[in-house]
Amino acid sequence: MRIPLSYVLKRIGFLLMVMWTAATINFILPHLSPKDPVAEQVQQKISSGGLSAESAQEMQEALRTLYGLDKPLWQQYVKYLWNTFRFDLGRSIYSYPREVMDIIGQTIWWTVGFGGTATVLAFVIGTVLGALVGWSKAPKFLSALIPPLAMFSAVPSFILALVLIYFMSFKLQQWTGGAFYFPLRGGYSSETIINIADLNFWKDVIWHSILPALSMLLVSTGGWALGMRAMMVTVEGADYITFAEAKGLKNRRVFFRYALRNCMLPQITSLAMQLGTIVTSATLVESMFSYPGIGNRLGTAISQFDYYTMYGIIFFLVMGIAVATFIVDMIYPFLDPRISYGS
């Protein structure tokens, strides 16, 4: 057993600490802000018209009671922690009475779907490409792919998203006379009915996700390839590769089992971390495409001063990273035998 139980327990304890810290910061932040979330909402209602001063006052108090803001701070805090612990992130204040968990549940799958696919694809393509470019016995023409990929990796994904929208959707529509172009926005066509049992729905979803996924994919593939190439060049100079060649092993075996295997260790760590931060990196791309994902929803919540939705989503993101780190920690000893925890 490479991971002693005591370590797992310690690590879970650490995970809980991270959760607690994130939850606490989440709780404190609105109280530090000069803006009062409730007053902010009522203000918006007034400005959008049709709310008298008295009813505004009444509404404000009703909302305070509803969110328990009239109770002492410590009571609020304890209640909040207890709720968070049960994954009850409260209700949206803007689209009351929708639950934040419900909002997350509806939007997260869109993001995980296109963002996760883009991240995993970028990882696979970039890693394989980087490995081949870094390997001296691989075909040389592959190295021509590195400069464009490196260029793409320097471009922010939302800029690339704009470029893609302009050429692949807007211009392509003009050029082909409307015959062939990628969708401009959204996660599915407005006339499509959401039905996960329907194959046509899935086709439509995939069709809509191509451009957003591509803007993330193109940006991150270069990073994976460059990192992998650097690792590969280092590993190829290692004594164990020289000795493997001296042993007369087949090139394929030396490449996969000796070189690639050793280069994968840092790559996998980065992949797990990236998977934890998909939402964060997808936010702007989703906004560009009005994609129904969680990142876009976060943007909306910010612009609506919907504090409870905002903090709910942010807490969820922090969780994602914390859990991803935890998983990497747990699988690492199985990837690298040199790593063991405890005795």
């Binding site: 004594d239 164990y240 000795f243 000796y258 295997r261 050793n262 260790l265 990837l335 040199r338």
Partner: peptide
């Protein structure tokens, strides 16, 4: 027989 015996074996195998 390699010179650098310390690193001549694949560390993950």
């Amino acid at each position: 027989i390699p010179q650098g015996a310390m690193n001549s074996l694949n560390p993950v195998m």
